[in-house]
């Protein structure tokens, strides 16, 4: 299953303002590959994911296209009806691994009951116990209620539910929130295996190290726009966009220096490049928004030679 997103924009009307949450995002997620969408909190990552699933509230305006190539006819997720999204897409074509698995589960029912329900609804080929075993849960764990599960176990239950309908595309929004590092690594390794089985994976995270562990490609988002995309190794070792370079440098095993300033409000994005007020390379040209070209949206990126 391949996802082809082109020119995706999302705006919210709020009293007295418009929130530009996603602006002209274009990217692809391909079978057997994991794309990590990284960026700081509030930059629009979750809104982008929710747009793909048709889960945005009524005050949202969505433009662009997001074509899912599943059968013969590509399906545009952005123009699909709510019924199509509910009956054909969510759970069957796209599996969502939620942001906080623990709170996503219903507190009053056991893990088994919730997993069985997902299997039933989605006509799963697997039994709850098969799925549980697949994700390192013991049968006994399934008889527990969510509050009796550790963060790591709740994560596994959420993974099992997301996979019950055998979706070809997995969407994981901050799946490691609240997990400690060994569990983060394990969660990333599980994603990698799911990907290696041929699924397309879109991982959303603020954690560069988690992204590095699993992603083939990385897309960096800043103030609602993608500013750099490319192979993970290249993005992390030879970042070209000054924001990417700043994020990479801020890591504790690098310079550990923050990017000065704060990101702009999405209700009041500056004209021109949104990173300019914080950018060490800003110049006159930056008063116009830089187009994404050759994987980077910056007037002054040190362009590497085209392959």
């Amino acid at each position: 299953m391949k996802l082809d997103v082109s020119g995706l924009s999302v705006r919210f009307r709020v009293p007295g303002a418009v929130v530009r949450a996603v602006t002209e995002a274009s990217f692809q997620v391909r079978p057997g590959r994991c794309l990590a969408l990284v960026g700081e909190s509030g930059c629009g990552k979750s809104v982008l994911a929710h747009a793909l699933l048709g889960l945005l509230p009524a005050n949202a305006t969505i433009t662009g296209s997001a074509r899912l190539h599943a059968g013969d006819e590509p399906l545009d997720l952005l123009s699909a009806t709510p019924a199509v999204l509910a009956k054909r897409v969510r759970g069957r074509m796209i599996g969502l691994i939620p942001q906080s698995p623990a709170t996503h589960l219903t507190p009053v029912r056991t893990a088994r009951a919730q997993l069985a329900e997902a299997c039933g609804e989605l006509g799963s080929r697997h039994t709850p116990d098969e799925l549980a075993e697949r994700f390192g849960l013991r049968a006994g764990d399934l008889d527990r209620y969510p509050h009796e599960l550790s963060g790591g176990m709740a994560q596994r239950v959420a993974n099992a539910i997301a996979l019950a309908g055998d979706p070809g595309l997995l969407l994981a929004d901050e799946p490691t929130t609240g997990l400690d590092r060994p569990l983060v690594e394990r969660a990333m390794d599980v994603l990698r295996e799911l990907c290696d089985e041929g699924r397309a994976v879109l991982l959303i995270t603020h954690d560069l190290r988690a992204a590095e562990r699993v992603a083939d490609d990385i897309a960096v988002m800043y103030a609602s726009r993608l500013v750099e995309t490319g192979p993970a190794g290249q993005i992390l070792e030879r970042p070209r966009h000054p924001y990417t370079a700043g994020l990479v440098d801020a890591q504790p095993d690098r310079a550990f220096v923050p990017i000065p300033g704060l990101p702009p409000e999405l209700t009041a994005l500056p004209d021109g490049c949104a990173f300019a007020p914080r950018c060490p390379r800003a110049a006159d040209a930056c008063r116009t928004v830089p187009a994404m070209e050759d994987g980077v949206a910056c007037w002054r990126a040190g362009h590497v030679a085209r392959a």
Partner: peptide, 14 residues
Amino acid sequence: TTMLDASTQAYLVA
């Protein structure tokens, strides 16, 4: 800083 991006983490630690 567990929930925060690398830049905000580096800032708060500083």
